[in-house]
Amino acid sequence: MKFSEEKLSKVQEIVARYPEGKQKSALIPVLHLAQEEWGWLSPETMDYVAELLQLKPVEVYEVATFYSMYHLKPVGKYVFEVCQTGPCMLRGSDEIIAYIKEKLNIGVGETTADGLFTLKTVECLGACGYAPMMQMGKYFKEHLTKERIDQIVEECRQNAAANN
């Protein structure tokens, strides 16, 4: 387990943002890099990050378990993180979550058998005026409707097929 040269130089760049000896501050950004690379944070990944930043493994575990964006178990290729907080609820997030469950035949926290989709519920992502919404990878999908969900699922399936 090792980052690519490109990612390693990114790590160097991140560490250089902080004063001498404060490389622990790089932990959260570097865990993001690791998750991008390997999809989730396995214990081995966390140990590798600890070694890279000269931290104790426990310092990495306690951070990885605190923040909700880190996946501590494997997830599907596409993760639908649907916001369920008040303002989104007022605009129908419950119905969207129910629709995704039915369409993909999975519960919250589960992954489809083909390994393509994981459904998660999350709390307010700062898109309340464009509700209902979900995060998918780096971007937000806003103003969700059932039709929009159909379309997104279809696009994901096509992309996955094209990349195989």
């Binding site: 622990k24 310092e59 880190y70 999350v122």
Partner: peptide
């Protein structure tokens, strides 16, 4: 500096802890 999902990190001292690479 990018956080990683935690409302509490908006509280200024929690934010500082997070910026130091902690919970």
């Amino acid at each position: 500096q990018r956080g990683a999902g935690a409302y509490i990190c908006g509280e200024e001292t929690a934010l500082i802890e997070s910026l130091e690479g902690k919970r």
